[in-house]
Design a protein around this nucleic acid. Structure first.
Length: 344
DNA sequence: TCCGTTACGGTTGAC
DNA sequence: GTGTCAACCGTAACG
C-alpha cells in the first residue's frame, strides 16, 4: 500500500518521502501549520514550503486552501458524531404537533418545526427521523391525546423561542460571517471563526506582520502556540480562552501530548531548519517528536531560514526578508488586513 | 516542475 | 467495556 512505501515506520511516527516526520492519522502540529501559512504569506511557493518543511505538497495545498477558506490554521474536528437533531426539545414539539393534530404527517411536522423556528435547515430532522420518533417515542400518543383532550385544557402551542441551537449550538450560528466574506456551508463554517482566532495574523498578536521582523512574529507565534499547547480537552472550559473555538479544542490535545513528550528530545528546529535540509535527505535520527514540538521558539527563527548556500534568497527561493507578497492569498487578505490593522 | 485532486490507511470521539 | 460509524488526518500518486 502507499503507506507501506514510506521509508521508515518507527513506533511513534513515520517518515515521508521528503524526510519529514509525521504521525499517520494525526494533524501536523500547529507550529508547522502556522509556518506553512506564514511562508505562503511571504510569497513562498507551496512547492518550496513543502520541501523546506518536509511536508507533502498535498498537505501544504490543503492547509493553505483551508486557511484561505476559513481563516484558521487549525485542523478540523476529528472524530465524534454529528450532533443529534432529535433533541428533547424537538421531540417535545413533535409530540405537541401530534397531540394537536393526530393525523398530521411527518413531513408536515417537519415543515412546522422549520416554520416555528424550532429547527433550522441545518438541524431539521428528516421525515424518517420524525416518523421514528412518532413510532418509538410517542407511540400511541394520538389515542392518548384524544383521550386527554377531553379532560385537559388545550395544550399550549409550541414555544419557538427555544431553538435547537440553544442546546446544540452550531458554530455557524455563533460566528457570523463577516462582511465581504463568503457564506460557507455548514460543514465549512464549523471552523469559521472571524475575526479568526486562528488566523496567522491573529496568532501573531493581532499585528500586521508587515510591521514586524520575522523573529518578532515567531516570538508571537511561539507564545500563542505554547498557549494552545498548554490547553487540552480536559482543562479547557468553553470560555477559558477566546483564542480557540470549541470546534478546534480537540486539536490542541495532540500537541499537548507531543509537548509532554518533548523533554530531552530534539525540537522541530532540527526537523524543519532550512539550512539543515538537503532535499530528499532523510534525517539520520528519526524521531516523531522532532516534528511535533508545539513550540516554535526553537522552530521558527529568522536565521534558520537562510538558504544553505548563504546567498540572498529570492522570492522564488524563500525570501523571508522580502516585503510581504500575499501571493495568491489576496482573497482573504482584505479581511486579514482589517483584522491586523486593529490592535486589541 | 508545479499543483489540485483523490485513494488510501490511519486516528479520533460520540453513540 | 466494546464495536460501529463518520468525521478528520497526511501521504503518495496521478494527471
Amino acid at each position: 500500500m502507499k503507506q507501506t512505501q514510506l521509508t521508515d515506520s518507527p513506533a511513534f511516527g513515520e517518515v515521508n518521502q521528503l524526510g519529514g516526520v509525521f504521525v499517520n492519522g494525526r494533524p501536523l502540529p500547529n507550529a508547522i501549520r502556522l509556518r506553512i501559512v506564514e511562508l505562503a504569506q511571504l510569497g513562498i511557493r507551496p512547492c518550496d514550503i513543502s520541501r523546506q518543511l518536509r511536508v507533502s505538497h498535498g498537505c501544504v495545498s490543503k492547509i493553505l486552501a483551508r486557511y484561505n477558506e476559513t481563516g484558521s490554521i487549525l485542523p478540523g474536528a476529528i472524530g465524534g458524531s454529528k450532533p443529534r437533531v432529535t433533541t428533547p426539545t424537538v421531540v417535545k414539539h413533535i409530540r405537541t404537533y401530534k397531540q394537536r393534530d393526530p393525523g398530521i404527517f411527518a413531513w408536515e411536522i417537519r415543515d412546522r418545526l422549520l416554520a416555528d423556528g424550532v429547527c433550522d435547515k441545518f438541524n431539521l430532522p428528516s421525515v424518517s427521523s420524525i416518523s421514528r420518533i412518532l413510532r418509538n417515542k410517542i407511540g400511541n400518543l394520538s389515542q392518548q391525546s384524544q383521550y386527554e383532550s377531553g379532560k385537559q385544557a388545550p395544550h399550549p402551542p409550541p414555544q419557538p423561542t427555544l431553538s435547537y441551537n440553544h442546546l446544540y449550538p452550531y458554530p455557524t450560528s455563533k460566528v457570523p460571517t463577516p462582511p465581504g466574506m463568503p457564506t460557507l456551508p455548514g460543514h465549512m463554517a464549523m471552523h469559521r471563526i472571524w475575526p479568526s482566532s486562528h488566523s496567522v495574523t491573529d496568532i501573531l498578536g493581532i499585528r500586521s506582520i508587515t510591521e514586524q521582523q520575522i523573529s518578532d512574529s515567531a516570538a508571537f507565534s511561539s507564545a500563542k502556540l505554547e498557549e494552545w499547547s498548554a490547553l487540552n480537552r480536559t482543562n479547557f472550559p468553553a470560555a477559558i480562552s477566546p483564542l480557540v473555538s470549541d470546534v478546534d479544542k480537540p486539536h490542541l490535545e495532540p500537541e499537548a501530548k507531543y509537548t509532554q513528550m518533548l523533554n530531552g528530545l530534539p525540537t522541530v528546529n532540527s526537523y524543519a531548519t532550512a539550512p539543515s535540509i538537503t532535499p530528499y535527505h532523510h534525517p539520520t535520527q528519526v524521531s516523531p517528536y522532532m516534528g511535533y514540538s508545539a513550540t516554535t521558539s526553537a522552530y521558527v527563527t529568522g536565521a534558520t531560514w537562510q538558504p544553505a548556500s548563504g546567498s540572498a534568497p529570492s522570492p522564488r527561493s524563500c525570501d523571508i526578508a522580502a516585503p510581504l507578497a500575499f501571493k495568491s492569498m489576496t482573497a482573504g487578505c482584505d479581511s486579514i488586513h482589517q483584522v491586523t490593522a486593529s490592535v486589541r
